[in-house]
Amino acid sequence: MMDVASKIVGPGGSRTEALMAMLFVASLIFALIVPFHAAWAAPANRSWLDILAQWAPLIFLGFCLNVLMSLIAVVLGTAAGGLLGIGQSAPTAWIRKLSWLVTEFFRNSPTLVLLFFCMYMIPFQIHVGPWIVPFPGWVKAVAGLSLSKMAYVSEIVRGGFASIPSTQWEAADALAFSRWQTIRMIIFPQCLKRMLPPWMNAYAIMIMSTPLASVLGVNEGLTMTRAAISAVGRPDMLTPFYLFLLALFFIYSYPISVWTIRLEHRYAMKT
């Protein structure tokens, strides 16, 4: 598998790729907007660029919520998934099996269904003594996203642990390290490098699933885009608005994916 990973990276080329992608977007915008524009926009109407400029801050604000949700979910999901992953490689059979079951369950269920689950199952507020802790929609969406991220991370940690030769465990055992010490000081530092690229991949997948929260009425990027479209009420504005949102996601995610591939490449060479 190592050698598959090292071959995934093409020779350089990411710059041409980026250029091509930009060209592609530009030509798409041109090809789709220009005919529409000519057909619908009366001279008295404002140009599409004008309208887009007016609504772009709102959409961008919504997109910021996407990023925020993904960042919180990645922290929660990594913490929970890390524990589950360690549980999956635990020496005690029932912990191992239970962790495996939980991981498989959340890995096999669609994110959208998990989001629905959290949306309907978590109360909108809970009473803790005298305080009322509210759970707005986006917090519940974060919970759903964390659950799916947790399953990914659990698998990544299990895989990372499995990639360390068992002699390392035995040597640590012989040197009287406790299990927790072994994990923290010997195993984890070694597999951290290997776990980083798949973890970043999982993050990329998660930021891509944040707009699902729009189905549940969270005011994030996609919801804002649709709101802007219905507020403007011009069919020719569909394309620029959606392309703007797609571009926001692309600009955010593309550097991450390039960086992931670089890291994969670098770590694959070293081992």
Binding site: E17, M20, L245
Partner: peptide, 17 residues
């Protein structure tokens, strides 16, 4: 190059959008 652009575009934008 076209295939690379297609892959980069589709992988880096959300499927629901």
């Amino acid at each position: 190059a076209l295939v690379r652009a297609y892959v980069a575009l589709f992988r880096n934008t959300p499927p629901i959008v």
